[in-house]
Computed example of a mutant assay.
Amino acid sequence: MGFRVLAVIDRDKDSDQTTDELAKIQAACDAVVRLPPGAIERAMADGLPLKSLADASATLTEYGIPDPMGGQPTEGAVTNLCKVIHKQGLHEQFLEALYAESNAPHPPVISMTLALLELAADPSHSGPGLIDVPTVSRPAGA
């Protein structure tokens, strides 16, 4: 039918199971874009200033939970934020908080993922079937 089939997947820890699952996904797709190592929640937060994450975290109290970062702009608090987003299923709400300003840019990993998907969607793309999104560091001093 001429449709290109693309997938975006997170990157769980390497194991026989994840290797088998990746092979199955690759067999079913023209290209697979794989997020950096770690949970999808981490990919949503990577590359963003700690203050932006703390501000978004504070809005999650609207869903009946304490602020996951507790107003503490630290990497340890980001880890807690990611755990809470995962456990409570607050992915959409967290992204909504990040996009509170109408002109807010996409988080870096999301921007790169979308750009790689656009590249892979082009019928002339003959690059690798597996495209890894690079890890993004937090901005210096953020």
Rank of each mutant, 00 (worst) to 15 (best):
A77L: 06
V136N: 01
R42S: 04
D14E: 15
S111N: 11
A39T: 10
Q72S: 15
A115V: 06
P105V: 07
L6W: 01
G71M: 09
A58M: 08
P123T: 07
L53D: 08
I9A: 15
E118Y: 12
D14G: 07
R138F: 00
S15R: 08
P37W: 11
L117P: 06
H125V: 04
V8R: 03
A97P: 02
P68Y: 06
E21S: 02
E41C: 02
R34P: 03
L6I: 05
G76V: 03
T19G: 11
S15V: 10
D67G: 09
A58P: 10
A120G: 04
A54N: 03
E21N: 07
E118F: 12
L6T: 04
G141Q: 09
G129P: 00
M112A: 05
P139I: 08
L53G: 08
E101N: 06
T59D: 03
K13R: 15
N80K: 09
G89Y: 04
L60V: 03
D122G: 14
N80T: 10
A142V: 01
A121G: 13
T19P: 06
T79Y: 12
A45M: 12
E96K: 07
L117Q: 06
T79I: 15
V33D: 09
I25T: 10
E101S: 05
G70S: 08
L50Y: 03
K24W: 13
S57F: 01
Q17N: 02
